[in-house]
C-alpha cells in the first residue's frame, strides 16, 4: 500500500509528460493551438441571406442556394494578403466545376469590387458582409476560411487559413470527394 502510494507520483508524472509529448509532437507537425474545430461540422449551413457586393458582381446568396450539390464557401477580404495567395487555387477549383460561394468579410464595396475585377471572380455568388455578422453565423474566426457543404446543405469540413497546393491536394480534394459520396 505504502509502496503503491510512493509510485503513484511517478506514474502520474509520466502520464502527464506523455500527454504533453503527444501535443508537442502534433504541434511540430502543424497543430495550431489557436485554431478551434468548427461548431458547425455535421450541422446545416446557416440560413443567412446575404446581399450582393455591388451591381456588377454576381451575388447575394442564402442558405438554400447551398443545397442540391456539393459546394464550397470561402471567406475573403480585399485587405487580406493570404486571400490573394490562395485565390489562384480557388479559381482552379471553380474552373473544375466546384460551385464556390464567397463571404466578403468586413470590406468596403468599392474595394471588394475592384479586387474581384483585378484578380478575377471565380465565385458563383459573393455575399457582402461589411459588419462581419454572417461570419459570426458561420463561426468564422479569421480570414481566409473555407467550408465544404454537401448536397443536403450540411457543413462537412472547415479549413482555417489559406489553401496551399499541399492543403488542396491532401485535404480539400479528398474532403470534396467525401462530401460527394
Amino acid at each position: 500500500m505504502r509502496r503503491l502510494l510512493l509510485i503513484l507520483p511517478v506514474v502520474l508524472f509520466v502520464i502527464l509528460i506523455g500527454v504533453l509529448a503527444v501535443l508537442t509532437l502534433q504541434t511540430k507537425e502543424g497543430r495550431d493551438p489557436s485554431l478551434i474545430p468548427s461548431a458547425l461540422l455535421d450541422k446545416p449551413a446557416p440560413e443567412i441571406q446575404l446581399a450582393a457586393v455591388s451591381d456588377d458582381i454576381p451575388g447575394g446568396f442564402a442558405g438554400a442556394d447551398l443545397r442540391g450539390r456539393v459546394t464550397m464557401v470561402n471567406v475573403f477580404a480585399s485587405w487580406c494578403v493570404p486571400c490573394l495567395a490562395e485565390h489562384p487555387l480557388i479559381t482552379r477549383l471553380a474552373e473544375d466545376g466546384v460551385p464556390v460561394y464567397a463571404i466578403n468579410h468586413r470590406d468596403s464595396a468599392p474595394e471588394a469590387s475592384k479586387w474581384l475585377k483585378v484578380n478575377g471572380n471565380p465565385f458563383t455568388a459573393v455575399g457582402f458582409d461589411p459588419e462581419g455578422r454572417a461570419s459570426v453565423e458561420w463561426g468564422v474566426t479569421g480570414v481566409p476560411e473555407t467550408y465544404i457543404i454537401n448536397a443536403e446543405g450540411i457543413v462537412t469540413f472547415k479549413h482555417a487559413g489559406p489553401i496551399t497546393a499541399k492543403v488542396l491536394k491532401d485535404t480539400i480534394l479528398p474532403k470534396l470527394r467525401e462530401a460527394g459520396e
Partner: peptide, 8 residues
C-alpha cells in the same frame, strides 16, 4: 515544438 521536446 522542437525545444518543447527537449524540455520534456
Amino acid at each position: 515544438p522542437a525545444r518543447g521536446i527537449f524540455i520534456l
